[in-house]
């Protein structure tokens, strides 16, 4: 299965779990992985770089390469969906809750929007 996977991360523990899941999945199936952060302004650029660097380390640990990129979009879910479409990805992988997710919310609003509106399959990791 030579799939192109897009993983949306935001520095939350759930998103890192999703990234690890995707990296392992890619290693097992021969898929390629791109890690994406969507930020609402360039102010968050530095934080975004830190998050991506952590995932790159995790990838090294798992023994697989990955692409990383960062987008600016005022709506996070739209940033993820746009990237998935433009980049021709076969699947989006993301955590069930992000940083703003309250404990009692079982599926965050970003994950909810992405599963609703993405053009491709979406895997929610928890």
């Amino acid at each position: 299965m030579t799939m192109k996977l897009l993983v949306a991360v935001d520095g939350s523990p759930e998103s890192e779990k999703a990234a690890r899941y995707a990296l392992q999945f890619a290693k097992d199936t021969g898929a390629s992985v791109t890690i994406l952060t969507v930020i609402t302004s360039s102010v968050a650029r530095e934080e975004s770089e830190k998050v991506l660097a952590r995932i790159r380390d995790a990838a090294k640990e798992i023994g697989i390469g990955c692409d990383t990129r960062s987008h600016i979009n005022s709506t996070i879910s739209r940033g993820i969906i746009d990237e998935a479409e433009k980049g021709g990805f076969d699947q989006i992988i993301m955590g069930s809750r992000g940083l703003t997710g309250l404990k009692r919310v079982l599926l965050g609003s970003v994950a909810d929007s992405v599963t609703h509106y993405a053009h491709c399959p979406v895997t929610i990791v928890r």
Binding site: A111, P121, I124, V125
Partner: peptide, 12 residues
């Protein structure tokens, strides 16, 4: 997708 205890892939 909301309530599962394991990962869920939604296909379209």
């Amino acid at each position: 997708a909301r309530h599962a205890n394991c990962p869920v892939t939604v296909i379209r």
